[in-house]
């Protein structure tokens, strides 16, 4: 009570003076939070600056010395790596893996989710539950046998191998997410379509997919980031066609000596995920929270 009584008059103060005094009374909090934000930005910022300095500068002084000697900043490292065929190929490999893997997961999962939510067959609930339990199966459980299978069908080491593996291991979560969204769609709409004689495919393509867009978009973003940022699957299955993460990992053995490739390479690999993050940040967070705050 005493607390509320103290606080209320302060909050009722209007105008610049009131606002200023309120801001100042929270001074330590602001300092703490802004310090925290700067602290969180520093590591990424450090890599960004490092990627714009020459190998010689990076082996002699810390990246923060650019504040006193801004002349250290140069585009040279980027010019060099953009002339590096291995790295360019690796970026294309990442794109070649990520795009089909993301789109196909969503498509295949949407079909299955539609069946699980709007079609009747025996053991549907148990079947769905089984698929959901697959979400936590560590992909380590499949690496060795799948490597063998890919060897037999002669795709081991290719981009296709990575795509197929990403799709399969993305499916349980994707089906789970989409089914839970589809089942909440207004069933009057679907029933009406059925009565009007629409086929299941037509209902799926013309009603469920468009209405399911929020969940599909959110899933697409997660799947994109997951596949783009993957290291392990690329390492095991796409060794001869390494995606960017694997390419950079191969340079790590001599970290200091290769920093001129590693720093700009790592930064290039971050650009697209960061763009996606900032562009869809609202969906991203909403998607993450959908379950937890209802």
């Amino acid at each position: 009570m005493a607390y509320a009584a103290e606080r209320l008059p302060g909050e009722e103060k209007k105008g610049l003076g009131g606002r200023l005094s309120r801001f100042l009374s929270k001074g330590p909090l602001h300092v703490l939070l802004i310090g925290l934000a700067l602290f969180w930005l520093t590591p990424s910022f450090g890599l960004l600056i490092t990627s714009f300095r020459t190998a010689a500068d990076n082996s002699e002084s810390g990246w923060w010395t650019v504040f006193t000697e801004p002349r250290q900043l140069t585009l040279e490292p980027y010019k060099k790596i953009l002339a590096n065929d291995g790295l360019i190929t690796a970026i294309f490999n990442t794109i070649k893996i990520t795009l089909p893997a993301s789109v196909l997961v969503v498509l295949i999962a949407a079909l299955a989710a539609y069946a699980f939510s709007w079609m009747e067959f025996k053991g549907r609930e148990w079947f769905f539950l089984f698929v959901v339990t697959l979400i936590v199966v560590p992909l380590q459980m499949a690496l060795i046998p799948v490597a063998r299978i890919f060897g037999i069908v002669n795709i081991f080491g290719t981009v296709t191998a990575a795509i197929v593996f990403h799709i399969a291991f993305g499916l349980p979560f994707a089906i789970f997410l989409l089914r839970n969204f589809f089942i909440g769609l207004p069933h009057e709409l679907l029933e009406a379509a059925r009565i009007d004689g629409a086929s299941e495919w037509q209902i799926f393509a013309r009603i469920v997919l468009p209405l399911g867009m929020p969940a599909i978009a959110s899933l697409l973003i997660f799947q994109f980031l997951w596949t783009w940022n993957d290291l392990l699957v690329g390492l095991v299955f796409a060794g001869e066609n390494p995606p960017i993460t694997v390419f950079i990992q191969q340079q790590l053995r001599q970290f200091g000596a290769n920093l001129e490739v590693i720093a700009p390479g790592a930064f290039l690999s971050m650009i697209l995920p960061l763009i996606v993050f900032f562009a869809f940040q609202r969906y991203f967070v909403q998607g993450l929270l959908a379950g937890s705050v209802k």
Partner: peptide
Amino acid sequence: AISFLATGVIWRV
């Protein structure tokens, strides 16, 4: 939003 690889590189620096 970024990969473990990028995080690893950032923190090795």
